[in-house]
């Protein structure tokens, strides 16, 4: 992306300078500030504001879950009544093995599923056991479900703010 409507110029400069990682130097925000041509304190203030507004979710280690052995990646999809979607979504998102949970539209007749919950675990058998647990939890709120495993990464460039 080459521009962003809602980011202030300094925020944008911070995203660009840190999206691949916080500089691994003793004073990383000073390094970012030098790149942006501003004072370190201004950069730290902007970073704190982005954390507070949720533009930055958090700062820390981002593990490669494949390297940690979480190699089975199952996209579980559920056909949940529209009247209980909020409740069902909250139930699934509270499970510690669910990493993302979204309400998305159905595409009838081929795609009846409207609730997506991503489950990562060490192998498919473990994912299947989690899915059983989720199905039991949802009970009659779910009229059907499926699990889509990723078999190949075809492209992964990530989201990048460009020059």
């Amino acid at each position: 992306m080459s521009a962003s409507a809602f980011l202030k110029p300094l925020d944008r400069a911070i995203v660009k300078a840190t999206q691949a990682g916080l500089p691994l130097v003793a004073e990383p925000w000073k390094a970012v500030a030098d790149l942006a041509g501003v004072r370190e304190e201004e950069v730290m203030e902007s970073a704190r504001a982005m954390l507070a507004s949720g533009v930055m979710r958090r700062i820390g280690a981002v593990p490669n879950h494949y390297a940690l052995g979480y190699v089975a990646n199952g996209m579980t999809v559920w056909d949940v009544g529209d009247e209980v979607i909020e409740e069902a979504g909250r139930m699934l998102s509270r499970l510690d093995f669910v990493t993302h949970c979204y309400h998305r539209p159905r595409h009838m007749p081929d795609w009846p599923y409207n609730l997506f919950a991503m489950v990562h675990d060490k192998d498919r058998a473990k994912v299947e056991a989690r899915v059983e647990e989720m199905a039991a939890l949802l009970g009659s709120r779910s009229r059907g479900h499926d699990v889509l495993y990723s078999t190949r990464i075809l492209k992964k460039t990530g989201l990048r703010i460009g020059a």
């Binding site: 962003s4 809602f6 995203v15 990682g21 490669n64």
Partner: peptide
């Protein structure tokens, strides 16, 4: 070292792309 061994994909801020516009 954790980055070089690919235990971590990154160390730093995790951005919420939805909140950046676009």
């Amino acid at each position: 070292s954790l980055l070089a061994r690919k235990v971590l994909t990154r160390f730093g801020p995790l951005f919420n792309a939805d909140r950046m516009g676009g």
